[in-house]
Amino acid sequence: MPTKLSVSLSPHVRGELSTQGIMLRVFIALLPAALMGVYAFGGQALWTLILSTASAVLAEALAQKLLKRPVTAFHDGSAAVTGLLLGLCLPPAVPWYLAVVGSAFAVVIAKQVFGGLGSNFVNPALAGRAFLLACWPAAMTTFIGIDGQTGATPLAYLQSPTDLAAAFGENWRLDAFLGRVPGTIGEVSTLALLLGAAFLLISRIIDWRIPLSYLASLGVLSVIAGVELSASLLLGGVVLSAFFMATDYVTSPASSWGKIVFGLGCGVVNFVIRQWGAYPEGVTYAILLMNVCSPLIERATRPKKYGEVKARA
């Protein structure tokens, strides 16, 4: 017999990108926003980001060790991405323990306890953020301005553009786009975020459907409600989350229509929370809620198999 034939299970055709490759690209895509955040807020922001990323990786390694699973924390990159994402969602001047505890919670409780990579049912970074918001609400809602003083973010003035202009100057739109307004470390520079997002879209890491439907639905609803379009999209963590959090493979639907429904849902819930909820920012809970709905959406939007016909009643 000249050739040996081997029998194996599917898949038989694999994509080129490994988990590591994907995570590396996402990490790189986040760097512009991270750099802008550090540029705007200085050393404390850098320290927060380092802490959150390192804690996430170490916490995952420890959890995998204790759960007697192979320790992949140091080379598969997913913990590092979760840590960086969480750090970018934090206000710049938070106490060290927020970054550490938040990352540990995100990686251990929201991910490892449920089975590790691929088995989390909500976005771990957002779960970590929600946990921190409930633990230390005061620290999570204290932001510093460019001048270093504590103050409100422009998002607090979402409903009244005139007060916004009064507080942040007539050029607030340009400032928000470039990264000269207060906010969490990662959300300030829309430009930097869009650069990273473009990179991910071009390298086909993320799909355009979720961010587009998310931003579109939020924008349209906000305009209907009388909020200025640029305000609703440029302020707060929407751009960061629409491109980097909502698009997480594990917690969003796989089907194309499913992605659109998911994005629309995120936009609607986000709008409702901003308009009538007790929180100024609705992004965290909007995505978490839609994460939980993902399985249902997937089931409802399952693509037809070739040749599949509906069973006659």
């Binding site: 106490p95 323990y97 505890v101 409780i109 946990f131 409930a134 633990c135 230390w136 609400p137 620290a139």
Partner: peptide
Amino acid sequence: YPKALIFVMAPGGFF
């Protein structure tokens, strides 16, 4: 001690 308020609320109870 920075009190982790979530633990005196429902989610903390579940955790």
